[in-house]
Amino acid sequence: MTTLRGMRVAVTGASGFCGSAVARAAAAVGAEVVCLGRRPGPLGEHRFWDATRTVPDLAGADLVLHLAAAVGDPPPGRAAAAAFHAVNVDGTARLLEATGGRPLVWVSSASVYRPAPGPIDEDRPLGGRTAYGKTKAAGERRALAAGAVILRPRAVYGAGDPHLLPRLRRAVRGGRVLLPGPDLRLSLTAVENLADACLAASGWPPGAYNIADAEPYSRDAVVAAACGVPVRHVPIPLAGAVAAVGTAVSRLTRREPALSRYALEQLTAPVVLDISRARARGWLPTRTFADYLAARPAA
């Protein structure tokens, strides 16, 4: 891995869940961290940047790690699609305008892939199904054309996670988690593994790299352990009806549903990433979901 000690590293989205982990990891190896975003990051210098409006100030930066993004599972509709496009696509264009040939690691998502059987490698055609997946795919095409390193993690989890695990816990009903059956294997990504990959990727050739924990997990085992209650299987058509209702309600409330059509797809499709391309560059994911559970404070 290229040493970052003494380098000035710009981290966009550094106030967010993933960005703050990356900023801390960069500082831990001796980098001078500059945090770009609407809010300050966990350490280092803060430079205000609204990805929907302005070109970021990257003066003095030796490396750019881009994690600013519109994320989540928004209510369907043109307004949400436009909001995601403004950050994930137009914001990328503004970032590229400022990079000026600096090395760029652009964090995308496995949501750019359509669910498919078998391990998914980086050559799989892109086809995100939601505003998030579609705009991340469009943004990374621009970044790839500019010579960036693209990282595609799936389902990032860890301490402070505001999306994946809280949503699972909201799905608890009557002392159980209702999931469409049967069980399946899924790739997940510890935020520490993603942070390590961001730092390591500063020395990788341009292109796309899948990022995930070393081995896929049993969905049911992970959900039961995260929620502290057993899993009960329900028929997929019933789960689909619940998701349809949740999506309809979200249109009215403008809030993310606990179970949307997209979330249903993620829970019923065995998405396993092939991470051999990143491994070939010497990256080794060391954290596991068991490590997360062991470090989690007792309820």
Rank of each mutant, 00 (worst) to 15 (best):
G133D: 09
A26H: 01
A69N: 02
N210E: 10
Y132R: 06
G175H: 10
L104P: 08
T189F: 09
K136L: 08
D62G: 12
L95G: 06
A143V: 01
V64W: 02
V242E: 10
L65N: 00
L151V: 05
A116S: 15
R38N: 03
V249P: 00
G174A: 12
S15V: 10
D73A: 07
S15D: 03
R24I: 11
G60R: 00
C18K: 10
L164W: 04
R114K: 12
A190L: 07
G175A: 10
D196L: 09
P230Q: 13
A61W: 06
C227F: 03
A21G: 13
V34S: 09
V172D: 07
I236W: 12
V87C: 07
P297K: 03
G207R: 05
Y217M: 07
A294F: 01
P270N: 09
H233L: 09
R78M: 06
A295R: 15
A69W: 04
A70M: 04
T54G: 05
A159I: 13
L252G: 00
R287Q: 10
A190M: 07
L151I: 07
S109K: 06
R167P: 00
G77K: 08
P216S: 14
G37K: 00
A212C: 13
G19L: 10
Y217E: 09
A146M: 02
G139S: 13
A69H: 04
E45T: 14
D291V: 03
L63D: 00
R152L: 14
S260M: 05
R277P: 04
T288E: 03
G175N: 10
L238Q: 05
P42T: 10
L264Q: 07
A190R: 05
M7E: 14
V231A: 05
V29C: 08
R129M: 12
A116N: 00
L67C: 09
R232A: 15
A68G: 06
A214R: 15
L58C: 03
A131K: 04
A61I: 05
A263F: 11
G30Y: 01
P40W: 07
F289R: 00
S202M: 02
A83K: 07
L65I: 14
A98K: 11
Y262C: 06
I236N: 08
A21K: 00
G127E: 12
V107L: 03
